[in-house]
């Protein structure tokens, strides 16, 4: 439709187009730049494009031959199930501690409520940012190297991960509140804590519950693999079997992770729905 030439006075056919000359030029230029950048990436990373097509056949082959009959008995084992429970506990504690840390950090990192915009706000921002920026695996490795193998390292890694994750969400939530009640409380002479507890918290309570539940969900997903570098939980099982090339057991473990994540997702969706209704 838009490509049909239309006629204006005189016999000059004019094509209608949404963008006029300098814009079109810029657009094509931008697309060209993106394309060149992608080609350069492929070149720089030495990606064998000619092998790319054969990859899918091999992928199917490997899945069918090596991973296919998942060793289900292996994951029904009592010891493995113990590890699963430990993983859940680790995620629970990590999320709990993380949310506990988030409460003050989210408050300090919210621009409208922070006690001191000059000192505490940037500091809290920096802490949440760096917690979020460093991947949970790196935290896990660092804690393992400091504290030794075991679930304490995993719990601490997950704590920092959750702090970064929930801190940002909570700060954004606090920044979006209605400032009326806060002003009213301040004008009656309430101190910082009182405005926080009676002015801000009732407004973010429901959102906070949602964030907390979601954080647990995310923490559980991360907890399934922090054990990879010795931080406890079922990740250790996964690593062991990967290293031993017991691919059928790896497939079984992946299936168990999948099922657990599905369950946790359903539970978290249900709980969030419930929390929203409480409003």
């Amino acid at each position: 439709m838009s490509n049909q030439p239309s006629r204006i006075a005189g016999d000059v056919p004019i094509r209608w187009s949404r963008y006029k000359f300098p814009d079109t030029f810029l657009r094509y230029g931008a697309w060209l730049c993106v394309f060149v950048f992608l080609v350069y990436c492929v070149e720089y990373l030495n990606i064998p494009l000619d092998r790319l097509l054969g990859v899918f056949g091999r992928m199917g082959d490997i899945v069918a031959n090596r991973y296919y009959p998942p060793d289900m008995e292996y994951i029904m084992d009592r010891e493995y199930l113990d590890y699963v429970v430990e993983t859940i506990q680790m995620a629970y504690l990590g999320a709990l501690f993380g949310i506990g840390l988030t409460l003050p950090l989210g408050w300090f990192a919210a621009y409208n409520m922070t006690p001191s915009r000059r000192f505490i706000y940037p500091l809290a921002r920096l802490i949440t940012m760096s917690c979020r920026a460093v991947h949970e695996m790196i935290w896990a490795i660092l804690f393992v190297s400091i504290l030794g193998y075991g679930m304490l390292a995993g719990v601490l890694a997950l704590t920092l991960f959750c702090t970064g994750f929930a801190g940002k969400l909570l700060a954004e939530e606090i920044e979006a509140i209605d400032m009326g009640p806060v002003e009213a409380m301040r004008s009656t002479g309430a101190n910082l804590f009182q405005t926080m507890i009676f002015g801000v918290f009732p407004q973010i309570r429901v959102a906070f519950t949602g964030i907390a539940i979601y954080t647990w969900d995310v923490a559980f997903r991360a907890a399934t693999v922090v054990g990879f570098f010795g931080a406890g939980g079922m990740g250790w099982y996964l690593k062991r079997n990967v290293l031993q090339i017991e691919t059928e057991r790896v497939a079984a473990i992946l299936i168990s992770i999948l099922i657990l994540v599905m369950i946790s997702e359903t539970v978290s969706a249900w709980a969030r729905g419930k929390a929203m209704k409480m409003q």
Binding site: Q89, G150, M151, L152, G154
Partner: peptide
């Protein structure tokens, strides 16, 4: 009890 106290070396 399980994760932090028992499992840590």
């Amino acid at each position: 009890q399980v994760t932090i106290i028992d499992d840590t070396d």
